[in-house]
Amino acid sequence: MKIKIVVGTALLGLILFHQVSAQQTSYPSRFGFGRLATTTEIALWDIDVRPDGKGLPAGQGDVLKGKVIYTSKCMACHGNNDTDLSKIKLPAPLLVSDTLAKSRPKAIGNYWPYATTLFDYIRRTMPYNQPGSLTDNEVYSITAYLLYANKIIKQNQFLNAKTLPGIVMPAKKLFIMDDRKGGPEVR
């Protein structure tokens, strides 16, 4: 029944559209294609985390647990601090680096402006060979370990949805939005 009515309305819409087709741009406000998404469907895919913490799941992690997971699931590709990675097939970016004082290769400690990005990225795509296989608690722990190894948090700090967004990253103050608009000036 419902479908028939929708089709009927759409047809009527089409006819009306035809009659006023002199106005080329008279799109209907809605076409009625697609369907409402359920909250379960949205929850399944909605995994993003914003800098203000929106999207962070329940759970908690700590530096020591994180170090254990890092050693077994990440170190093979990402190395430890200054390990030479040239023998590894997929050269993965260095994750631990000194903070701003000494200019080290781009890494979390001297280049990442938001701690939430680390949680979001690791949860969505790492470890590279088993993407999306970590539990939320494991991701909190690895995030804690990487922030500790980059000298941003203390070894005894726990991470959860409350504490993670509060962490101020050393590189945050360096970031500026591009405001170029074209024109003759080279910037």
């Binding site: 990442w112 939005m177 591009d178």
Partner: peptide, 27 residues
């Protein structure tokens, strides 16, 4: 109502401009 600051728009696809790091260079 705000950007997500994903890895690609912070750790990657940004670049040093003098003593700052420029982000959101879209065009």
């Amino acid at each position: 109502d705000e950007p997500y600051m994903t890895r690609e728009e912070t750790s990657k696809y940004t670049y040093p401009v003098k003593d700052r790091i420029r982000m959101f260079s879209f065009e």
